[in-house]
């Protein structure tokens, strides 16, 4: 299973980005290999519709779950159609803290 986390930086020690559609990077955690990669959010600077475009990018990469500070109405609707689980984390945790939590599950 692959989980995308909105990230402020390209580092495990960096924090989760509270914004979904316009976060600069996504941390992609693979629960099978327990490894984390970082990808650029191509929609970060989109004129419009950054959120749906980011979902498009993640869905094409086979993501099953997205973790972020919050999601807009368009995203909730779109992700339920695509069977992508959404998880909200309000605290400023680091990417490592979040992936460690997944590892211990």
């Amino acid at each position: 299973m692959k989980i995308a986390i909105s990230s402020k930086t390209e580092s495990l020690s960096g924090e989760i980005d509270s914004r979904f559609g316009r976060c600069p990077y996504f941390a992609i955690y693979d629960s099978d290999t327990q490894s984390t990669d970082f990808v650029v959010n191509k929609a970060a600077d989109a004129t419009d519709g950054a959120g749906p475009a980011a979902v498009g990018q993640l869905a094409a990469a086979g993501i099953n779950e997205i973790v972020s500070g919050d999601f807009g109405m368009k995203i909730k609707d779109l992700c339920s159609q695509l069977n992508i689980q959404l998880t909200i984390i309000k605290e400023n945790l680091t990417i490592k803290e979040i992936t460690d939590n997944f590892k211990s599950k």
Binding site: D48, G49, V55, A59, A60, G62, Q81, L82
Partner: peptide
């Protein structure tokens, strides 16, 4: 330019907002 169409090729999914 406005991301009004989302197409996810592997899932054969397309939607216009």
């Amino acid at each position: 330019e406005y991301n009004a169409i989302i197409c996810i090729s592997p899932a054969k999914y397309i939607r216009m907002d």
